[in-house]
Design a protein around this nucleic acid. Structure first.
Lengths: 246, 246
DNA sequence: TGGGATTTGTTCGTATGTATT
DNA sequence: GAATACATACGAACAAATCCC
């Protein structure tokens, strides 16, 4: 279900007390972008958003600036904000840096997971699978968020902050360049990563993670190569997954 | 020389045309923090800064928010902004993540430096040495910036952005925890890094860089251990450097 | 504890800059 | 190319919270 920008849905008390109104607007917009309710390039006029959400332009602007710092939106001076449209080069750049940071996540997490944490991860993947089967609109976001859940277990606030940002941009990239209805994160790969981490096998964990990220990027970007069309076998095997699940 | 917050010094045309006024305020404050003209914990009232710089609170606030996103300043709701005071844990966190990203810098740069780039790096180190001998106030900033210069050569906008932010925070940390008048970045270590990169020896380059960053952090943080006092030999050898240079 | 001074949080009008016809 | 329409950039003023006697 796409995110309706609906101020009624979120209690204002929570928004005003804990996280100020700009944070509220920030959260709404961020979610809408990640679930592709707001696609790349869509203009984000301060006025319209403010009216819709019942806040003034000032607070919208602050939210937009925060999103711009994360490079989820682009702000052109005097021309306003729009949802970012990362180039292919930027996409590669994001994944290069992200891979390096995920290496650190794996290093720190490997062998240190409690049984509860393993369970949390496994259940998350189950949720991904459900979202994929049901062709839920936020499947990409859910698949991406697996990496955030994992990063939270690395016990480094800074690393978490960076991963959050990079994962969000990755989701935007996959939405932009990936094929629709295509699993962006292979769920079996997520499962293999969990297994290696649980078994305290850093080398395998890292290899699995590294291959996984490579795969995610290339599954998306290769559609733009010479022969953009997926092979018949690919198509069939993928649709089979969906049909079987029903 | 500490940064005087002096609006006259910078032409407004440049500030208004290229980078808007918030960017100008941002740049001034950032520099002042890095050169420790504004020390950790110092309050940053919107009004005073705005008056000093001839802009309204609106633009000051935007600059402060941008600095807060980088965690160079802390903003407490309803209580305003102040220069960040990173904890020891945050310091370690910064250096952990930074080390991982510098690894990527080394990987990408190693063996790919043009003779001109090598020269630029060598001259920068010479400048550091000069600043150190003259006990220039911005020595820490200059030493830190070596890593930014290097990151620029890695040809990755995102990596550069992250390194810039982490190096700035590192400088703040060294200013907070390091001993005054102490070389924070060992200049010979910088030279060794350049040499290894020039020689296209990735393994040595990485080892040198990694040891270097370890050294920087521990030279600063170990002052807070049980025997905080530096040994006599350390003191003497360091002051000898300064005297010899004269 | 209370009240005045100070500082932040926000709104909104106006000016400025950009795109379009 | 000029004029128009539009959205942003900025600043003054007000409201609310915090600090300090």
């Amino acid at each position: 279900m796409p995110v309706a920008i609906n101020p009624e849905k979120i209690t204002y008390t929570a928004a005003t007390k804990r996280g100020s109104r700009p944070d509220y607007v920030y959260a709404v917009l961020r979610l809408a972008i990640l679930e592709q309710a707001l696609g790349p390039g869509v203009k984000l006029p301060e006025d319209a958003i403010g009216e819709q959400l019942g806040v003034s332009r000032t607070v919208v602007r602050r939210a937009l600036e925060k999103l711009a710092a994360e490079e989820l939106v682009e702000i052109a001076p005097n021309r306003g904000a729009s949802v970012a449209r990362p180039t292919i080069e930027e996409a590669r750049d994001v994944f290069t840096v992200r891979t390096e940071l995920e290496r650190l996540v794996v290093e720190r997490v490997c062998g240190n997971l409690t049984p509860t944490q393993v369970k949390v991860l496994e259940q998350w993947v189950a949720g991904e699978e459900r979202a994929y089967r049901e062709a839920a609109d936020d499947y990409i976001r859910q698949a991406a968020e697996f990496h955030v859940i994992l990063a939270e277990m690395a016990d480094s606030p800074l690393l978490l902050k960076y991963i959050k940002s990079l994962v969000a941009r990755s989701a935007l990239i996959l939405g932009l360049y990936g094929r629709p209805n295509w699993p962006s994160c292979n769920m079996d790969e997520h499962r293999s990563i969990i297994a290696a981490l649980r078994d305290n096998d850093p080398k395998r964990a890292w290899k699995t993670m590294s291959d996984h990220l490579d795969g995610v990027l290339h599954r998306a970007l290769d559609s733009w190569g010479e022969d953009a069309q997926p092979s018949v076998t690919e198509v069939i095997s993928n649709y089979a997954r969906v049909v079987d699940a029903e």
